[in-house]
Amino acid sequence: MKRLIVPIAPFLLMLGQAFGQGTPPGKEQKMEKTEYVTFTLSGKVTRQAVTFKNRYGITIAADLYIPKNSDNGSLPALALSGPFGAVKEQSSGLYAQHMAERGFAALAFDPSYTGESGGQPRHVASPDINTEDFSAAVDFLGLQPLVDRNRIGIIGICGWAGMALNAAAVDKRIKAVATTSMYDMSRLMAKGYFDKLTTEQRTNMLEQMSQQRWIDAEKGTPAPSTNNLPQKLQGNEPQFVVDYFNYYKTPRGFHPRSINSNGSWTATSALSFMNMPLLTYINEIAPRPILLIAGEKAHFRYFSEDAYKAADGPKELLIIPGASHVDLYDKLDIIPFDKLTSFFNEHLKSGKPAQKEKVAAYGSAN
């Protein structure tokens, strides 16, 4: 059987992160002076490598950030992950460290099948299992002596923002949820950019991935996607591809375990996302509060805006003036940490019910 080439490479390039970015396994890129984390570690917090298992028995690797001199049982806690294809040493770790500096126990984790977490085969994503990863992180946090288990929230970044909202809908222990630069990965993969994927295009994509399964079954291993970030920019790429490249492929954000920096999703990873909409029950997050943060110039800003419209109960939409999608990965002068802190301080009060709906906020970062 001949290997089928999916005839949608330009489309997937437009989608950026839909299937994968980077170099196929076995051809890893090397970069000098890659630090263990892509940000400067803080002296105000402690950082501990931890592991725990999710409901499917997969071992999840995480870094737990704790403010120094904390009292037992007193801390509100946050579980964080994202972006899609990143690792805990990138954006989620940066967010966790800064939230720990502000008084939270913050757990940045690698989703199943990625980074230092378990699961075989590698570089696979699942709307169900990756939603469960957030709940498993809540399990872990709630067992820590320093944490008040009635004061746990979650933060999802980029593609893991949709999983965070999905987790909050089903897991009622999550008292508040915030997202930044949200992608709804199931909508993106199933419907394309601005929902412009035609039925014929969708059918062709599913046919190609279905046929790819025969090839994978015969070889006994899933093939990597070939629709990845370029190793060098040619000068004619869309701006959001340039933005991704400038984060994942340069010392700014490169990490050897990051799929987006140095690997590839499997060629069939999109199958389950195309069949299982993530935000079907977003209205069931209510009455718990939602904070959605997006850059004014983000190419997928409409995901956050549409999620805001679909959600019931307390909700807030914050658009950061002049910011792009990737700016919210690591730009400390742009990420609204003060807003995240006030949001979770307000809503992670033990026994405190969520308040009435807030009007969408368009304004400055903090």
Rank of each mutant, 00 (worst) to 15 (best):
P230C: 02
Y244C: 02
N228R: 13
R257Q: 13
P251W: 00
R257E: 11
N262W: 11
P222M: 07
Q239S: 12
G235F: 01
P251A: 03
G220F: 07
R213V: 15
M209C: 04
T221P: 05
R252D: 09
Q231S: 14
L233K: 01
P224W: 09
E218S: 13
I259N: 09
G235R: 00
Q211P: 06
M205E: 07
R257S: 10
S261K: 11
T226P: 07
F254M: 01
P256N: 07
Q231A: 13
Q234M: 10
Y247H: 06
K249Y: 05
P230I: 05
S258G: 14
S258M: 08
Y244H: 06
K232N: 06
E207W: 11
L206K: 13
T250Q: 04
S258E: 04
N262T: 11
P238C: 01
N262R: 07
D243M: 00
D243A: 00
R252M: 09
K219C: 10
S258Y: 05
M205N: 09
V242E: 02
Q212F: 11
P230M: 04
P230N: 03
Q212Y: 08
Y247P: 02
Q234D: 15
M205A: 12
R213N: 10
P256L: 02
P222V: 09
Q211T: 09
D216Q: 07
T221F: 14
N204A: 15
M209V: 04
G253N: 03
A217E: 14
K232M: 06
Q211I: 10
Q211R: 12
E218W: 14
I259K: 10
M205C: 13
F240Q: 07
W214R: 11
Q211L: 15
D216G: 10
Q208Y: 15
S258A: 15
G220T: 09
N204H: 12
I259S: 08
V241H: 00
L233Y: 04
T226Y: 13
T226M: 15
F245D: 01
P256D: 04
E237K: 00
Q239L: 04
L206N: 03
S225I: 07
L206V: 08
V242G: 00
S261E: 09
T226E: 15
I215S: 11
F254T: 06
K232H: 13
N236M: 06
Y244G: 00
G220V: 10
T226N: 13
L233C: 01
Q212C: 14
S258F: 04
V242T: 06
L229H: 01
A223N: 14
F240A: 03
R252H: 09
L206M: 14
R257G: 02
P230Y: 02
F245K: 01
T221Q: 10
Y244E: 01
Q239W: 03
D243Q: 03
K219M: 14
S225Q: 09
N227V: 06
S210D: 07
D243S: 05
N204K: 15
Q208I: 08
P238A: 05
S225N: 08
S258D: 06
G220C: 09
P224M: 05
K219N: 15
L206R: 11
I259R: 10
